[in-house]
Design a protein around this nucleic acid. Structure first.
Length: 669
RNA sequence: UGGCUUAUGGUGUAACUGGCAACACGUCUGGUUUUGGUCCAGAAGAGUCUAGGUUCGAGCCCUAGUAAGCCAACCA
C-alpha cells in the first residue's frame, strides 16, 4: 500500500476544503471565460488547464463562456479560433455561452439596483469623474449627480437604453463609496453607452455592461462554484463579492473567485495587445505564425496537445510571479515526439559525396527502421546510390579525435547503409569544397564512432525548410520600463532553407510530424502543396556536440549574451553574507576558496555596510566568520578600531566554534 | 504616500497538524547506442529575503524590516 499522497496546489486545497465542508461534488462547476478579442496563447493554456483540468478531475462540467461585453473589440473570428484551440487541446466544454446571453437579466438587475438606491446615473465627463475618484493614496469625493432621485435615475437609464443619448453623455454607476480604500469600489461603472454593432446581439443594445458588473453575475447565473482567474483580478474580488451580495439567493451556489499567478515564458510576450501589434506590423505572418506563442502558432509549428498539456501540468500553480524557461516547453515536445514521430533522413545544408568504388548507375533500396522507440512502427525502403548529399557540418578535411564525423582517412557509418572512408576532396577556385570522394565497404559490422544521415541525390526531393529562433532576444522583453518590447526583436527569427529529403516524404500530408534524424522534429506546414513540400522545424534534438563547440567560441552566442547584462549586480556585502551562511558546511578546500572570495569582495565594502552584521545572532556562526574575515580586510585597508569592533572580535574569540576563533585570532594581532 | 499579494537551488513547483529541504527542467560525469538523440547510472547546485523572538526543535508560528508585483481605462 504505497499511498503516494499527491501534494495539492492551493486551488485544489480550496476545493477539497469546500467538499469537506459539505459542498456536494455534483455542485462543482467551472468556467473558462475568454474575451473574443484575440487568439489564445500559451499563457491561456494554464487557465484552460486549471479549470478544465478540475472538470476532468472532479467530473464536473466546465462552461466555455465568451466574455463579450465590449462590441468595439470583439469579433466572431476570434470566437471561432478560440473554440478550435480549446477543442484541439482536447478539452470538452459543457455549454458554449456568452455574457451577451445575460444582457436582459443584467439590465433587469440594474433597474432593481436603481430602485433600491444602489445605482445612479452620472452625467459628467470621464475626466471629471476620474478627478473625483482620487488616487490609491487619496480618497475620492462625491460627484454632483450622486444623489439623484430614484425616479430621475430610472428615467435616464431607460432613455440610455432607448438610445436617446450620445456615447459618453451618461453612465450608470453602483453607489458604494467614493472614499473606499479599494479604487475599484469607488462607485464603479456598471453601464456605458456604446452605439456599436455587437457580434451576437446586433443593434439590440446601445448600453453595454462592464466587466465587473457582468462577470460575477454571469458566474452566478451559470452556478459556477469556483471562478478561477489570474492574480491581477485580486482587487476585483471585493467588488465581485459586493455585486453578488446584492442579488444572491442563499439557496443557490455562490461563486467563489480565486486567483493564481499567470504563466510567463522566457523570451516571449503574452499580452494580446502586443501580439496583435506583431501581427499588424507584419513582424510575423499572422496569429498562427509558428514563432508566435499562440496556440494556433504552436500547432502550426508542430507542437502536440499532449506536450502542451504536459507542460502546463509540470509548471504547477501558485501565487508568485514566475518566468518559465522555454527549455521546459522544448523538453515536453521532444519527450512526446520522441515516442511518436517517424524517423526520416533529410539534408538541410548539402555537400555532394561521391562513393568512388560504388558502380555508376547502380541503386539499392535499403531497409530503414521507422522508429526504434516504437516496435509497431515498422520499416521503409530508402534508395542508395553512388552520389549522395550529406550535411556540410558532417565533414572536415582534418579533425581531432573528438570529432566523430567524416574526415579524410577516417571511417563513419552512413545510417541504414554502409561504412565509408574519406579519401579526397574537390574544391572550386575559391577553395570551397564541391565534392567529397570516399570509398565504401559492405562490412557494416565494423565499429565506427560516427553515423551520418544522407540522401541519394538522384532520388531526393527538394523541400523548403523553415527554421525558427526566438522572436525576442531579451528574457523578459516587456518588463523594461524604459524600453519598448519591439526593441528586442530578433531579426533572425526565421531562416528559410532549400533542403533535400528522402523520397518517402513525397506523400507527407499537412501537419504530419517527423524526426529528421540527428537534426530535430519537423512538420509539414500548411503552405505545402502537391508541388512543393514545406517543413517547419518544431524543435531541434538535444545537441551536446553543438554545445561543446559553442563553448569554444563564446563570442558566437549573441542571443545568450544579453543574459549577463540583464542580471542585476548583487552588492558585495550580500554576496559575502551568502558565502558566510554556508561557510561552516563547506569542505576545507572550498572554505579556503570562499575565504579568498570574501576577502576579495570585502575590498568593495564600507564599514557602514559591515557594521549591521556585528549584531548577527550567535548561532549564525557562518555569517560571523564571513564578517570577521571581511573586517580583517577593512582593518588592513586602514579602518580604525572602535569599541563596536573590539566587542565583536572579543565575542568571536570566546566562541565555541574553532574556525571563528581562529579567524578572530588572525586579526587580533 | 495608501491598499492588496508574494518571497524556498539557475528556472518552476513540493515539504500533510513545527521534526535536520523533495520532484521536474537545466548543468556536469560515466555507460549503452547504426541518431553526439533516446535510455541507464551518478554528481554538483538552496540551509528556505533580512534581523530578532517562541520552541528540545522553525521553510512552516510571532514581531519588525527589505524587495518584487498588482491597483487611479466609459478594457477584460
Amino acid at each position: 500500500m504505497s499511498e503516494e499522497r499527491k501534494s495539492l496546489n492551493f486551488l485544489e486545497q480550496i476545493i477539497e476544503e469546500d467538499l469537506a465542508n459539505g459542498m456536494p461534488q455534483s455542485k462543482l462547476r467551472f468556467r473558462f471565460p475568454p474575451e473574443p478579442n484575440g487568439y489564445l496563447h500559451i499563457g491561456h493554456t494554464k487557465a484552460i488547464g486549471i479549470s478544465f483540468g478540475f472538470g476532468e478531475k472532479y467530473n464536473a462540467p466546465v462552461n466555455l463562456r465568451f466574455d463579450d461585453t465590449n462590441p468595439a473589440k470583439e469579433e466572431q473570428e476570434y470566437v471561432d479560433a478560440i473554440k478550435e484551440d480549446v477543442a484541439w487541446l482536447g478539452y470538452k466544454w459543457d455549454k458554449e455561452l456568452f455574457s451577451s446571453d445575460y444582457f436582459q437579466q443584467l439590465y433587469d438587475w440594474a433597474v432593481q439596483f436603481i430602485k433600491e438606491g444602489k445605482a445612479y446615473v452620472d452625467s459628467q465627463t470621464s475626466e471629471a469623474m476620474a478627478e473625483q475618484k482620487g488616487t490609491p493614496t487619496q480618497p475620492g469625493i462625491d460627484g454632483p449627480y450622486r444623489n439623484r432621485t430614484v425616479a430621475e435615475n430610472l428615467d435616464l437609464f431607460q432613455r440610455m437604453k432607448a438610445g436617446e443619448f450620445h456615447e459618453g453623455s451618461h453612465i450608470l454607476r453602483a453607489k458604494i463609496s467614493m472614499q473606499h480604500p479599494n479604487m475599484l469600489m469607488r462607485d464603479p461603472i456598471m453601464y456605458r453607452i456604446l452605439k456599436k454593432h455587437h457580434h451576437r446581439t446586433g443593434n439590440d443594445w446601445c448600453i453595454y455592461p462592464m466587466y465587473d458588473w457582468t462577470h460575477g453575475e454571469s458566474d452566478y447565473i451559470e452556478q459556477i462554484s469556483h471562478s478561477l482567474c489570474s492574480l491581477e483580478f485580486k482587487p476585483h474580488r471585493e467588488l465581485y463579492d459586493w455585486f453578488l451580495d446584492q442579488i444572491t439567493d442563499p439557496n443557490l451556489i455562490r461563486p467563489k473567485q480565486r486567483e493564481f499567478a499567470r504563466l510567463n515564458l522566457s523570451y516571449t510576450i503574452m499580452s494580446k495587445r502586443k501580439l496583435l501589434k506583431l501581427v499588424e506590423d507584419g513582424i510575423v505572418r499572422g496569429w498562427d505564425d509558428p514563432r508566435m506563442p499562440t496556440i494556433s502558432g504552436l500547432r502550426r509549428r508542430g507542437y502536440t496537445p499532449n506536450a502542451i498539456r504536459k507542460f502546463v501540468e509540470t509548471v504547477g500553480v501558485a501565487k508568485r510571479d514566475n518566468i518559465i524557461d522555454v527549455s521546459l516547453l522544448e523538453f515536453c515536445i521532444r519527450e512526446d515526439l520522441n515516442k511518436t514521430a517517424p524517423r526520416v533522413m533529410a539534408v538541410l545544408d548539402p555537400v555532394k559525396l561521391v562513393i568512388t568504388n560504388y558502380p555508376e548507375g547502380k541503386e539499392e533500396w535499403l531497409d530503414a527502421e521507422n522508429n526504434q522507440e516504437d516496435d509497431s512502427a515498422g520499416f521503409r525502403k530508402v534508395p542508395f546510390s553512388r552520389e549522395l548529399y550529406i550535411e556540410k557540418d558532417d565533414f572536415k578535411e582534418e579533425a581531432n579525435s573528438k570529432y566523430f564525423r567524416l574526415s579524410l582517412g577516417n571511417e563513419v557509418r552512413l545510417k541504414n547503409a554502409y561504412i565509408i572512408k574519406g579519401e579526397s576532396v574537390v574544391k572550386d577556385s575559391d577553395g570551397n569544397i564541391t565534392e567529397i570522394h570516399c570509398t565504401y565497404s559492405e562490412d557494416t559490422s565494423k565499429k565506427v564512432k560516427g553515423t551520418l544521415h544522407w540522401v541519394s541525390i538522384k532520388h531526393a526531393i527538394k523541400a523548403e525548410v523553415r527554421e525558427y529562433d526566438r522572436l525576442f532576444m531579451d528574457e523578459a522583453p516587456d518588463s523594461h520600463q524604459d524600453k519598448d518590447f519591439m526593441e528586442f526583436l530578433n531579426p533572425e527569427s526565421l531562416k528559410i532553407l532549400e533542403a533535400f529529403v528522402e523520397p518517402s516524404l513525397k506523400s507527407a500530408k499537412v501537419g504530419d510530424r517527423f524526426q529528421f534524424q540527428r537534426l530535430g522534429y519537423f512538420n509539414v506546414d500548411s503552405d505545402a502543396s502537391a508541388e512543393k513540400l514545406v517543413f517547419n522545424k518544431t524543435v531541434g534534438l538535444r545537441d551536446t556536440w553543438a554545445k561543446q563547440e559553442q563553448e569554444k567560441q563564446p563570442e558566437t552566442k549573441p542571443v545568450q549574451q544579453n543574459n549577463n547584462t540583464s542580471q542585476p549586480q548583487r552588492k558585495a556585502i550580500d554576496v559575502i553574507q551568502q558565502l558566510g551562511k554556508k561557510y561552516t558546511n563547506l569542505p576545507e578546500a572550498k572554505q579556503l576558496k570562499a575565504k579568498e572570495e570574501i576577502q576579495q569582495l570585502a575590498n568593495e565594502v564600507s564599514f557602514d555596510e559591515l557594521q549591521p552584521l556585528f549584531n548577527t545572532a550567535a548561532k549564525k556562526v557562518g555569517t560571523r566568520i564571513a564578517t570577521i574575515i571581511s573586517l580583517g580586510v577593512l582593518l588592513k585597508n586602514g579602518l580604525q578600531r572602535n569599541t563596536d569592533i573590539e566587542e565583536f572580535i572579543n565575542n568571536a574569540l570566546e566562541d565555541s566554534n574553532l574556525i571563528l576563533v581562529k579567524e578572530a585570532q588572525e586579526i587580533t594581532f
